[in-house]
């Protein structure tokens, strides 16, 4: 009789330990996703701070493009996919304006513009890298909570799959074709 009780205690303790480990793993991965997200967010904010300067410098050269850019920035967006979509739009317009500058020698020689160009392309790269890291984290988190037996426990704790930072699957395919 005593042995049976002891056995039950051991089994219960083992299950408890496994659950604790699982729980901590979920929390750890979730926090990592949050941190990765704030990494993207920081860079997006940084770019939004730079863009008014770009608009000021290039207004006289690319009126239509700067107006479009200003419009895109003003849009408020909620979900991650929406933010990703807006990000794509802004990137497209920024690179369009930077490319336009190539045809204006006086703009190209402007020191303020030159610095802005380096800062903006640097920030664009950082956004891309932050997105890469965030998507890796999300993938890791999603696979972890979907695997058996994690999925049962994750469901109980109401952990849901997280959204990737990308526009849509179609767009992703387009990009890979270009490569």
């Amino acid at each position: 009789m005593q042995e049976i009780i002891l056995g039950i205690i051991i089994v219960v303790a083992l299950i408890a330990i496994i659950l604790i480990i699982m729980y901590n793993r979920f929390i750890q991965l979730n926090i990592r996703c949050n941190n990765a997200w704030s990494g993207i967010d920081n860079q997006l904010k940084r770019r939004n701070d730079l863009i008014p300067n770009l608009v000021n410098v290039t207004k006289g050269y690319a009126k239509y493009e700067t107006e479009t850019l200003e419009k895109v920035i003003e849009q408020r967006s909620g979900s991650i996919t929406e933010i990703a979509k807006q990000n794509e739009e802004i990137s497209k317009n920024v690179s369009k304006i930077l490319a336009l500058a190539e045809s204006y020698p006086d703009l190209k020689a402007n020191q303020v513009f030159m610095n802005l160009q380096i800062e903006l392309t640097g920030t664009e790269d950082k956004i891309a890298y932050a997105r890469q890291f965030y998507n890796d984290c999300v993938q890791h988190f999603n696979t972890t909570i979907m695997m058996f037996p994690n999925n049962i426990f994750a469901n109980m704790l109401k952990y849901k799959e997280r959204e990737y930072f990308k526009v849509s699957d179609e767009d992703k395919e387009n990009v890979s074709v270009k490569l």
Binding site: N35, A36, G39, Q43, G122, D125, K126, A128, Y129, A130, Q132, F133
Partner: peptide, 8 residues
């Protein structure tokens, strides 16, 4: 800095 963001 960009690479460090990707590498966390």
């Amino acid at each position: 800095e960009g690479l460090c963001i990707a590498a966390n």
